[in-house]
């Protein structure tokens, strides 16, 4: 326990997107999640899947928030996990493309249904399933766009949402 006032008090909280390249071995995700819960860090979003089956590499994308000191700690702690190859703070290291995908179910008939379709069109959401009284939209973009879309769908019969969480990649030619 820190002997003094919480160093977070009065310091600015920032949100960062961190990419972690790990060996895809059993328990690796548990290690990452355990690190966040054990040390009291925030996870706003976490995605993981294998990206290089031949090398058994998985990429984890974490959106987290904290003071500068905490964010540096998070990266150092991630880097310390034995199966971790690389940790990259995409927010810190320059422009990056964050994307999320959502499936949004909207139930309704009449004018509301038409309005839902109109908004979906504006957001470039695709209809992937429909009946006389429902649509399922598929929409991708940054989290802000998805938030705006689901908010607009709220009064139009929004009944179910499934979101992937954020994946992100740095702009430019350089890889992780």
């Amino acid at each position: 326990m820190a002997y003094g006032p919480n160093p977070q008090v009065g310091e600015e909280i920032a949100t960062h997107t961190i990419a972690v390249l790990v060996d895809n071995e059993p328990g690796v995700l548990a290690r990452v999640i355990g690190l966040f819960s054990g040390r009291g860090y925030n996870i706003e979003s976490l995605t993981v899947t294998e990206v290089d089956p031949a090398e058994h590499l998985s990429r984890i994308t974490i959106v987290t928030s904290g003071t500068q000191m905490i964010l540096e700690q998070i990266k150092a702690q991630l880097g310390r996990l034995v199966p971790v190859h690389r940790v990259s703070d995409l927010t810190r290291e320059g422009p990056h493309v964050p994307r999320e995908l959502a499936l949004v179910k909207v139930v309704g008939t009449g004018e509301k249904r038409v309005e839902a379709l109109r908004i979906a069109d504006v957001f470039r959401a695709r209809v992937v399933d429909s009946s006389h009284d429902h649509f399922i939209f598929e929409i991708s973009g940054d989290s802000g766009k998805l938030n705006a879309f689901t908010e607009l769908m709220g009064p139009l019969g929004l009944s179910d949402i499934s979101r992937t969480g954020v994946v992100a990649i740095a702009r430019g030619a350089e890889g992780l």
Partner: peptide, 11 residues
């Protein structure tokens, strides 16, 4: 030797 010890509690 452990980078996570740096700036953990004391800057």
């Amino acid at each position: 030797i452990d980078p996570s010890s740096i700036n953990k509690s004391v800057m």
